[in-house]
């Protein structure tokens, strides 16, 4: 796992877009994908092509995207494992002793796997082309409640600090030959986390004092609202338009 907002270098078109259109566009895309019935296999191919286009536009390395896609593997595997055990109704595709894979079972597997890959892929593009502060600003501009926006920006600021602290503590533990191999050795890690919590709590108190010292009274504004440019709108029209057209053709029973 990496720290959020680890948008990698490069300043091409997709990186420069306003975070708002990327959030709305890719979240909207994911929603459309999830609502598409799995029988329309061609639609999923078109969705995938749209994402390939975007990823190429952003010059994302396929390896980086692929690595991040691994997070869905456990769930896909679980569905695959249970495939022979359920949905015994329907046309049998493969039979192996008491185990049967039916077309219904296979369809469920296809449905989950394809949708998981496509929506996750879209969110990966969002994550890889948007830095965390941009993401927070985007959410703020989209009128996400202030508590969350501010908490997110705090979290981003301090998670790095805490990660560094926890890493240096881990190094200190490793220098004294702590190398946990199984659950029984875990409590030492817990002690370390306890120390981290104490540090982070007093950090929170000190930050609060620093804020109050500068006139904080419960809420504050982060940034002014920015205006969307033509390229931002073009992106939104492209991604939402592509998803909508594909979905509408599916609904109309096309192909």
């Amino acid at each position: 796992m990496t720290v959020p907002g680890s948008a990698v270098g490069g300043l091409n078109l997709l990186h420069r877009l306003d975070a708002r259109v990327k959030i709305v566009g890719l979240v909207g895309f994911a929603v459309v994908v999830v609502t598409t019935p799995p029988q329309a296999a061609w639609a999923f191919v078109l969705y995938a092509l749209t994402l390939v286009f975007l990823a190429a536009l952003a010059r994302l390395s396929p390896l980086a995207v692929g690595k991040r896609l691994l997070v869905i593997v456990p769930f896909v595997v679980v569905v695959a494992i249970f495939l022979p055990f359920f949905h015994p109704e329907g046309r049998v595709l493969v039979e192996w002793g008491p185990l049967r894979v039916t077309d219904r079972g296979a369809l469920i597997f296809w449905n989950t796997a394809a949708k998981a890959v496509l929506s996750t892929w879209g969110m990966i593009i969002l994550g890889l082309t948007t830095s965390f502060p941009e993401l927070v600003n985007g959410l703020s501009d989209l009128r996400m409640p202030r508590v969350f926006v501010l908490t997110l920006s705090f979290m981003h600021r301090y998670s790095r600090l805490f990660l560094e602290e926890s890493q240096s503590m881990r190094r200190a533990m490793a220098s004294r030959n702590y190398n946990p191999r199984w659950l029984g050795q875990v409590p030492a890690l817990g002690k370390m986390l306890g120390a981290l919590f104490l540090r982070s709590y007093s950090r929170g108190e000190r930050v609060y004092v620093a804020m109050v010292s500068r006139g904080y009274e419960g809420t504050f504004a982060l940034n002014g609202r920015r205006r969307l440019r033509a390229t931002d709108l073009a992106f939104a029209v492209f991604i939402l338009g592509a998803a909508a057209v594909i979905r509408i053709v599916v609904a109309a029973g096309g192909f």
């Binding site: 508590v147 501010l150 908490t151 997110l152 920006s153 705090f154 979290m155 981003h156 600021r157 301090y158 998670s159 600090l161 805490f162 990660l163 602290e165 926890s166 981290l196 919590f197 982070s200 709590y201 950090r203 929170g204 930050v207 609060y208 804020m211």
Partner: peptide
Amino acid sequence: PLLGVTAAFIFA
């Protein structure tokens, strides 16, 4: 601030 550092702590 409390929520922010707690979330950061949990995240870490």
